[in-house]
Structures are given as structure tokens and as C-alpha cells.
Amino acid sequence: MMSSNQALGILLQIYQSLLVVALAPLLTGWVNQCRAWLQNRSGPGVMQPYRTLRKLFHKDAVIAYNASLLFRATPYIRFGCMWLAAAIIPIIAVDLPFSPAADVIALVGVFALARVFIALAAMDIGTAFGTLGARREMLVSFLAEPALLMVFFTASMISHSTQLPRIVEALAQHQFVLYPSLAFAGLAFVIVLLAENARIPVDNPATHLELTMIHEAMILEYSARHLALVEWASSLKLFAYISIGIALFLPYGIAEVGAMAGNWGSALPLAIIALLVKMVLAGAALALLEALLAKMRIFRTPEFLGTAFLLAVLGLLIHFLLGA
């Protein structure tokens, strides 16, 4: 027996994940376009990532002689993980039926799973750049992951739950409250977001200068459909991270499945418009941030991410002190 609420929930769930998968490259395109504008270039247009994906899918894949099955499976695994992340995070609505499958800690686990596979795939061919990228990626991540968890801890201390929908409800559905602890967590989260998505002070998404790259070094050996999936998954990851940021720090306007049974005709479009507006703003802010910052030396990143960890811990402590 399935109540209409559940059916609606499942529909919404499918809708949300499809929407996210479709929109993710657009966000990447938007960020790149904003960057281009800030650098006084005209830019390729926001649709460029789609064109790139289409082109890549049509090409013949070339892989190295000694590539193992792991190398070929990784793009699919990574794509699956990112899709799952996008399904768990309340992006257009809370209380989606899939969300109890994983809480924030499991979400961190999903990202970790994807990362471990891409690092292993990078080591599979055995090139100098591949292992370099894998090593650096793991270096960045082992510092970023605890910081991310501390951010989530702060949020879950406030909402008494590690379920993202509960967190969003606690933060959005009550009266507007300023949470100093969340301000700290927010700063920490921005740092983690930059590091984990191969953004500028840590990595440069546009670089092809070998010695400075991390993410690009790992995926050097991929081509055609594999590369397309990897790139798409990266867009999804950025989208997922920004959605987490929105869910934790700007959750206003999200729809609720339970309350939507009667009037979903009005709540859903509102939620989508709110999402689009927030995404546009967040993408522009990200581009601005990248334009203002300079790439740092790889051994400065531990300090940078240590700062994120510190901020998150401070946020937690302030939560204990002020109860907010």
C-alpha cells in the first residue's frame, strides 16, 4: 500500500535527481562564464559544458595498454556516487523518500568512495602525473574531510540530527535566528568546497600546467566517454556541494513533501525558482572568489585546510557556549 504522499515523494525524488543531473553542467558553465567576465574575456557561453560532453561522448575512447578494469569502471562508479549524493541532499524538497538511506556522515562517505576510486584509477596507468595527482588529491582530502565532518557536526548539534532533511527543517522552518556557530561553519565549508572541487587557491580547474594541477593530473589518461562521465561527475559534485551549502546555510524557500500534498502546484515552482536564484548567486560568488584568490603552493594547503578545521571546531565550541 502506498499512500499518495509516498507516491508523490518518489516522483519528486526522481524528478530532483534528473533535474540535478541535467542542471549540473549548466552550473559549471555559469561559473566559467562568470570567471571569463571577471577576467575581461567574453567567455564560451554557459552552454559550453554540454557541447563538450556531447563532443566527448561521440569520440572513440583510447586507453593505455596496461589499463585495468578498475580504470574503466571508475568513471561509472564516480558518476553513480555523485548521483546518489545529489539524491540524498534536499535540493528542491525535504523529506524525499531516499534521504533516510544516508545521513551527512554517509554523504561524506559517498564523496570519499568516489575519491578513492578516482585516485586508484589515476595510479592504474602508472604515469608520473597520475600518481602525482592521486597523492595530492589524497593529501587535500584527508585534511578537508575532517573539516567537512566538523561543519556537519556543528549543524547537527543545532538540529539534533545528522539527517539532512531534519537539519534543513530545523534551520529553515523556524523563526529566523542568527547562528554565530553556523557563520564559522559556513566559512569552513567554503574552504572545504574550494579544496574538494579543485578550485583556485588549492587547485586550478583550468590549468594544464603539469606541476600545479591535482584533479586534472588524475584524469589525464581518460578520454571520450570516460572523460565525459568524469567531467559530468565533477559538475555534479560541485552542484552537490553548493546544494549542501545552501541546505545548511540558506535553506529558505525549500519545499516540504508532507505539506505539499495539497498545494504542490505552488510550492514546487517556488522551490525551483528559489534554487535557481540561489545557484546563480552562488556560482557568481564562487567565480568572484576564484578571481580574487591566487593559487597557493601545495604545501600551503595543509595550513589552509587546517584553518577550515579550526573554524569548524571554533563554531562547535561557540555553539556550546552560546547555545546557538
Binding site: 572513440d60 583510447v62 593505455a64 595498454y65 589499463a67 608520473a128 602525473f129 597520475g130 602525482l132
Partner: peptide, 20 residues
């Protein structure tokens, strides 16, 4: 799917000693 030598930024003289 085609197989080819590893690309590695076009660097031709890859040896196994260059891995980590």
C-alpha cells in the same frame, strides 16, 4: 575502445621509475 600507449601529457619516455 582503442588501446594505445599512455599519454601522460605527451611525454614519450615513460618508465616505471617515474611512478610514485
Amino acid at each position: 575502445l582503442l588501446r594505445g600507449p599512455a599519454w601522460d601529457c605527451g611525454y614519450p619516455e615513460q618508465t616505471s621509475r617515474m611512478q610514485d
